[in-house]
Write a protein that binds this DNA or RNA. Structure first.
Lengths: 346, 346
DNA sequence: CTGAAAGCGCTTACAG
DNA sequence: CTGAAAGCGCTTACAG
């Protein structure tokens, strides 16, 4: 390894112990917040630690603990904004706690998916992992984490696990709110482009749509349902199909904003005005909502908060702290200008 | 710490040494690719390591080495796609090397910016850091890294450091290519919305524009230059200004795609057709280019490759390997349908 | 080319 | 409430 030696040697637990006139074990107790410690001693040591700028070495602690202070975000989510927001939420919580965030992008369909993750977790002796969709929906992965005793927090649209390990996003609720919004505007013939069947969220958003319409006395016609791939291109293709139906839908609820942008493109090519001829609703409230015209009505998920909540649940498991109360976050419909009263009613 | 004990104890260097009938030091030499080792011994040990699935403990190695096996990506870049692509590029290179990637989002204007980074680097004894813009442009940061002997790789639009520590993106080149493209189409009155003055890339792209026009015998008129903030909203505002000038520009070169999307919005509101009344060029080739209509001509930066190159340069420093040859990557103009011959010439 | 001893900076398990 | 000994899994520095 390169690099010259540091001028001033790093402070160690021994140095602090000497300065405080106690044993290193006492310093260790301060670091680890041990309850069996005189308040006066703790404060005196804490003061010295502060003064000399001592930072316990996480590698040495990890070696002795047989657990590192690393938390991993294992993701296969193609939405960059989603991943970045989640990272930020996790950082919001762990910064200052001594833990760090390691990122692990992967492909769920890769043949070595499971064995690579296993090697990674065991090699690094990870303190825990955060799993957003769609890796959060892989059951084989959880059997693995159970088997190797690795704490984890899953984020998914519906509860799939113990509350202490789950952050539930209730996509169902957001989708039903969107559906009621469309119904209240007067839409009756509504198209739905769902996400791929392999995503739990696709089902939840679809179920939510049906529920929301049902709340308003409407029945969703499954002929107006088509499965997309959560991509822009799939949105275009699926929208073309829906717009060719008779009667033509007066509104389309897309499973995410990418596909909603595809609906815009298809509507544009068909010479249809949004929202005049067609109302559009998306899901995610991603940065794109304000860049398309008209601004897109979308269901917002508090992704950063979800990351923060997952991190808190993880720390609660790792430190045996009292479990978190909040098990879930709530989506919120943000109404913009892509939805209006359908033309026939105007 | 929670978690039950593992059923089967982990393999250690001692176990492997016993199985191979050599000392642990020999195993250590195999792990660290020491040259002074009989080929036969190395192969025999490697085979056993493979068979028993031994993975050296990075925490123990790090403790003994006084350096961790962690590389950090320190970023304050607001472009999610940029950061994700860069992460992926770094991972492409370090996966399998024993190093892991830790993420550190930050704010350059935060009062504790420098001291927090210093604490972070020292506490984790980082093997190295990767710095994309705009943290890559902070000179105080480099004095710090020098002072604490922390290896780093900087990514910037122009060379700011030793070749072994720099990945240069030559934004100048991409911008001049875009300018020549516009000139070749016949545009003479060209507007430019640059990024904020505090970004080196903003200057480089502006300089590139001037150079490219000059290559075609044109002189850029600085009255058609306005500074934006690399955001969508700033793009709208700046485009409105440019479109109010007399004569009105027939083309606008935006400093990034976000602002180009803002130009679209302003053009739309002004009733101008793209590219009929106004040609638009962006920079970044971000996912948005295909979602706006018409698809945006943009300068593509190979961000993932840049991350990979930065990681390779970092590993070269850390392991004292021969330095990388490539010092830079090249931007590429991707021509789509937002640029055409200006109306007066048709 | 290979090895025995000491140490990296912490915590655990056991005393007192 | 506090401490001395042993150990976590590696590498360094020194021998041979």
């Amino acid at each position: 390894m390169a690099g010259r030696d540091d001028e001033t040697r790093r402070m160690t637990i021994n140095d602090v112990a000497r300065l405080a006139n106690v044993s290193k074990k006492t310093i260790s107790r301060v670091i680890n917040n041990s309850p069996l410690l005189k308040q006066e001693t703790r404060e005196r040591v804490l003061k010295i630690i502060e003064e000399v700028g001592y930072q316990p070495d996480p590698q040495a602690r990890g070696l002795a603990f047989r657990r590192s202070f690393l938390i991993a975000l294992i993701y296969d989510n193609p939405n960059a904004q989603y991943v970045i927001d989640m990272q930020q939420g996790i950082i919001d919580v762990i910064r200052g706690s001594g833990f760090e965030l390691v990122v692990y992008p992967c492909h769920r369909r890769h043949p070595n998916f499971l064995s690579d993750i296993r090697k990674f977790v065991e090699r690094q002796r990870l303190a825990g992992v955060v799993l957003p969709p769609s890796v959060s929906e892989d059951e084989a992965l959880f059997k693995l984490f159970e088997a190797i005793s690795c704490p984890y927090a899953r984020i998914a649209s519906v509860s799939l696990d113990l509350p202490t390990r789950m952050v539930v996003t209730h996509d169902h609720k957001g989708a039903s709110e969107a559906a009621r919004h469309l119904a209240d505007l007067g839409h009756q013939v509504i198209g739905h482009i769902s996400g791929p069947n392999s995503f739990r969220s696709a089902h939840e958003r679809h179920r939510g749509l049906i529920q929301g319409l049902s709340d308003r006395g409407l029945t969703f016609d499954e002929r107006y349902h088509i499965e997309g791939g959560y991509t822009f291109e799939s949105g275009i293709i699926c929208a073309k199909h829906l717009l060719s139906l008779n009667p033509r839908p007066t509104a389309i609820f897309a499973g995410n904003d990418e596909m909603a942008a595809g609906v815009y493109r298809a509507a544009h090519e068909a010479g249809l005005d949004i929202p005049g001829d067609l109302s559009v609703v998306g899901f995610d409230d991603s940065p794109i909502v304000s860049k398309v015209w008209p601004p897109l009505t979308s269901v917002k998920l508090p992704i950063r908060d979800m990351g923060a909540l997952a991190a808190r649940k993880l720390l609660a498991q790792i430190t045996d702290a009292p479990p978190e109360q909040d098990i879930s976050v709530s989506p919120l419909l943000v109404v913009r200008q892509s939805t209006s009263i359908p033309a026939p009613l105007r």
